[in-house]
Amino acid sequence: MFKNIVPDDGAALQALVAFIITFAVFSMIMLRAWHMRREDSDHMSSLPLEDDSETHHTS
């Protein structure tokens, strides 16, 4: 009844696969982020603040 409770498995392989896939994605995105020009980054990060000149009127 207790057989197979701790099965032999590919735990080591799956850990490596998960890590490598994640590392690959992180690496690519980090490269993109590092190579972003500062002025572009500043412009993008201030986009939400650009609409502060809105005018309001009653409908």
Binding site: V25, M28, A33, D42, S45
Partner: peptide, 15 residues
Amino acid sequence: RPVYSYRLSIIHFWA
């Protein structure tokens, strides 16, 4: 004030 790091937000999103 603007978001702390736009670069970090890119990594945050895709990851």
